[in-house]
Design a binder for these strands. Structure first.
Lengths: 123, 123
DNA sequence: ACAAAAGTGATAATGAGTTATCATTATAAA
DNA sequence: TTTATAATGATAACTCATTATCACTTTTGT
């Protein structure tokens, strides 16, 4: 990640613009609108580089390979559309899970995923 | 899944006894204590059969292949130990996530995973 | 006890996702 | 501009979990 290229800029832009976790394939599809001919290998390479330099983070959801979003966002969770498969960012958090933690266990973090139909896929 | 074999009984017993989601490898390790020589293929075949007949369910957690637990439990979530990797069942649920759902989205379900150290791995 | 057929275990094959390779292209310092 | 070299794109290779194959074993109805 030393040189500035059209490909890397396109990939960074796509992550910023969509503002939701994107799969490598989603990044490819969107970034090809900016840089025709962009290859999937460059997407994987660049995403890894962005994560290494702290500009992006991997988002793991149940049953899916990692998606990637811009780093540095405040604490948030995700909505996974069961129809189109897109993942959206959610604000807010119930916050208190201590009542669920068994005696002797030491909680350090949590993840919440809501499932359902997104705005575009609602019944 | 038509005949009753030592292998199948051992696998069912392991799922019941441990009362937490187990990976196929964890099932194998535990069930080999009951049936030495048990093979991983039989574990995969039997888990699939148990799911098909509704006796077990797959539990998907972020970044991991499916684990399996006994079916029919009431609504619950899981604690994933960051040290030993074991997954434990939790009781309770905050329940109200509607305040997190954006306008126009239709929520249908949710998952919560707590991370931290389990009783055996606490600092 | 016997026979038909389902089940098992070892392991080869598969599939999805990701990474490595390498000839070519593009960047950027001089 | 020139030049050194990092980056790219096509695709081969790889990883890991899971499934298929098949010779042999076990179960179960008769």
């Amino acid at each position: 990640m030393e040189r500035s290229t059209r490909q890397r800029q396109a990939i960074r832009d796509v992550l910023s613009e969509q503002n939701r976790p994107l799969s490598p394939q989603e990044v490819l599809d969107a970034a090809q609108g900016k840089v025709p001919g962009l290859g999937i290998a460059t997407v994987y390479r660049t995403l890894k580089g962005l994560v290494d330099e702290g500009a992006a983070v991997a988002v793991e959801l149940p049953g899916n390979p990692p998606r990637y979003e811009v780093a540095g966002k405040k604490h948030h969770h995700h909505f996974h559309c069961t129809v189109c498969g897109k993942v959206f960012e959610l604000e807010g958090c119930p916050g208190d899970f201590l009542f669920m933690v068994p005696e002797g266990f030491q909680p350090q973090g949590h993840e919440i995923v809501l499932y359902g139909r997104c705005k575009d896929c609602r019944a």
